[in-house]
Computed example of a mutant assay.
Amino acid sequence: MLCGYMRSGTHWNFEIISMLLNGIVETIPHRKESLHLEQASQDKLDHFPSPRVLSSHLLFENLPREILDRKTKIVYLIRDPRDALSSWYTCIKKINLSYNEQWNITLPDWLELSTSGKLEWGSWFENIASWERALQEHPDHPILLVFYEELMQEPLKEITRIKDFLGLPRDEHFCKRVVEKTKFEKMKNDKEKYTERFAGNAVHYHKAVIGNWRTMFTVALSEWFDDLYEEQMAESIFRKRDCRAFDMTKALVGNHFDSNMTYYLLAVENVLDRQEKDVYETGINHSDIDVIGKSVYNVERDYVEKQIILMSSGQVSLCKAN
């Protein structure tokens, strides 16, 4: 199951995960929407036998109960909300989709509307809060967090994480081929005959870059969004956009970690950050541990390592940051 808010990389990851599941590095010969829960009928879903990648933008609690009962593996995508929302704005302008029977909305008005929760799928903040609750309340459900920015910067490492999470016997050579096949321009061209189009233009493929919001936000708009972000994310473990604890988790346990370990360290970081501790600074080598060096927000490295070991063995439960 592939989940994430609108414009968080679901089309890209649909290709990646489908290739990993099928064991064939070939363009998927149909649209992601064919297996999108909110758009596909039961008959259409039944047309695609397993292995298949179902996708959704729904909140965790709105997913079919069967997914929870079966403990279906879920890859949850997270992207900088400024990029996700500005990309959605661009997408909607492409197809001239109108709200209130006309399309004359500016980007500031669009951001205010889309963050209010009044559109389909709610707001980005509601979505991230829902999945954070899922990590807290269903720690035994297999959920892998994939950050769009991490996948852009280190695709081989992230694709390897995904295939390990799914328990697939794909070697490094295979994963490298998937990386090449799913590079943006290559994938965009390969999906040309399958993708949704409007006025001759592909709807879902825009730029696939990190930080494109900077070309669209004014200083005033950026400040407004930052204030909104701090307000909405005040109690969230994902408040820190640079996700330093996420990086530290990977440094400590390599590619063999799950969302629970990530959740724990994000919670530790968030609690200590509220105590106004200094941000730790360290170079991180993702292949081993020996470069951590300093304490993390005055939490000793040995303590954090012990917590990871205890938690992975079931001796420590997740705690909510408060």
Rank of each mutant, 00 (worst) to 15 (best):
D43G: 14
Y280I: 03
T195I: 13
K240S: 08
P142D: 09
E305Q: 14
F257T: 12
V299I: 04
K294G: 12
T115M: 07
L265D: 00
G211Q: 14
C243R: 12
L63H: 12
E235H: 10
I309D: 02
D109Q: 09
M6L: 14
D83K: 09
R65F: 06
H11A: 03
L20Y: 10
L85I: 09
E137S: 13
E66V: 13
S222K: 11
Y5E: 04
K186L: 08
L113M: 15
L111P: 10
Y280R: 00
L266A: 04
V279R: 15
A202V: 07
N100E: 11
K320T: 11
L228K: 11
I16F: 09
T215C: 10
A251Y: 04
L252S: 00
F125N: 06
L35T: 15
P64H: 09
T182G: 09
E38F: 00
V296Q: 11
L21V: 03
K277M: 08
H141T: 00
N322S: 11
G167R: 05
Q315G: 03
F174Q: 07
G293S: 08
P139H: 10
L77D: 14
R65W: 05
V53W: 06
M187E: 09
L21I: 00
E120A: 14
Y303E: 09
R241Q: 14
G167S: 12
E235C: 08
E26T: 05
E120F: 07
R177G: 13
F246I: 01
F48H: 15
I17W: 07
R197Q: 15
V304N: 03
N285Q: 06
I210G: 01
W103G: 01
E196W: 13
I24T: 13
D140E: 15
N127V: 04
T282S: 15
W103E: 07
A267Q: 01
L68K: 11
I284E: 06
V75P: 02
